[in-house]
Design a protein around this nucleic acid. Sequence first.
DNA 1: GCGCTTGACTTGTATGTACAAGATGACCTA
DNA 2: TAGGTCATCTTGTACATACAAGTCAAGCGC
Lengths: 259, 259
Amino acid sequence: MSGPAPAPSSGASGPTPLYRQVKDYVRRSILAGDWPVGHRIPSESELVRLSGSSRMTVHRALRELKDDGWLRRVQGRGTFVADRRTRLDLLEIRNIAEVIRSRGAYGCEIVLHERRLPPAEVAEEMETKRGASLFHSRLVHRLDGAPFQLEDRWVNPTAAPDYLGVDLTRQTPNEYLMRAAPLSEVEHRLEAVLPGSLEQELLGIGPYQPCLLLHRRTWSRGRVASRAWLTHPGDRFYLATRFAHDAGLPLSPEPEPEP
Amino acid sequence: MSGPAPAPSSGASGPTPLYRQVKDYVRRSILAGDWPVGHRIPSESELVRLSGSSRMTVHRALRELKDDGWLRRVQGRGTFVADRRTRLDLLEIRNIAEVIRSRGAYGCEIVLHERRLPPAEVAEEMETKRGASLFHSRLVHRLDGAPFQLEDRWVNPTAAPDYLGVDLTRQTPNEYLMRAAPLSEVEHRLEAVLPGSLEQELLGIGPYQPCLLLHRRTWSRGRVASRAWLTHPGDRFYLATRFAHDAGLPLSPEPEPEP
DNA sequence: GCGCTTGACTTGTATGTACAAGATGACCTA
DNA sequence: TAGGTCATCTTGTACATACAAGTCAAGCGC
């Protein structure tokens, strides 16, 4: 556990808390490349031995690193280095398909609509037990003939048992789910990606066409109800906002000291 | 402390943890408008009495709510309801660089900082006359050593005459402009792109690394004050939101004195 | 071989206790 | 009155303990 964290230099904030030191140790190990993505890091009890602190202190450090997206923790198995990208709060995004719909000739093509066993990462995102099968649908949304969204969606059967019976050409999955599973929480994640060859074909794009990927999870009654990957070709799609500001910007009344 | 959180009904996820129930109680009280922005909420010891749980449990709930931006806590004074509006509708008033800054070791490298004649398309975006020279700066923002944003910015001299004299290592362009040119309007545009070779080099990425490009224009006193292209490598950056959908936020106009 | 149990190990939560440190007002003293 | 002191409130951190629950492999009995 070597160095006791980068000395705060300005002694303003007092000594570095122990849980902070543990966090910094883990983060440095990840940044240094000692622990690559997916690597299982030392368990709590090992870190207790290494750091000389108590389990609750180590536990808090790891939990916060998990909340910050650095780690992935699985009860009974261990703690793993997560695929981390800088994360930022921002922006509310409503369902894109419904908004776009009114802008031209809308069409929808059903590629998949079935019940099956999800890959491990999907099961994890949906917070379901391994071995539990889920609903899976894949749709191509078109506007004036050109695909503008590839929708890959998994649905939790306990949240929307009738999902397989829905006619997805008359009702988008999102429209149905809004009714069937009252929304309690939403999580969005927006990133830039290069789609694989299957997605390229479905979207009718070339091999090096960057796309906006909107990853969206919805909760209903405490469970993850649905997980959607919405891929939008970057050459025919972007998000925009424009708005005016009131005269007096409140912004931050108190600058908040910040060490 | 009334209801013990939304009944899990399906025993799928087990009973709701105690700290979760405390969080939900506080969140509901805020969303219901019982505790307006700036209001001092019950202290930990009071919540211990109200909830019947231990102080550590209450403390964890409040700490997480603070981390999520719901509360502001001041040692020795108490816990207050934070102003959450800025996170929801003010979108990206704060430059991404400033938000990211607190997440690790921040660094900034100035590539350009000069006055020159803009290309025609920039002049058009800035709504300036042809032949009028503008301020131009290009910065690479780094987090923990790795570039996460390439900022290419043009500034209107009539809106911020001192821009060339600003030390951009101590103050991001956005920070300076917020002070120098009171914001009246903002326009955003977000898309997925493949950067050119110059941008690749500055960001330290490969030739086929898709990036999120945030295009931003700000107005001040009726003029375009600034135009920024913010490029973020897709392999180390994404945008995210997560929020509860209980009800519309009250947007209480009186922030209450706050003792 | 197949299925089950068992135990070791993991993370998740809950509680009690203790001390540190900031804020505030009552109170005492010069 | 002015200033310092102290008690008391607040949140922040640290630690020990306990139990719950998920995972996995070894080992047992059929």
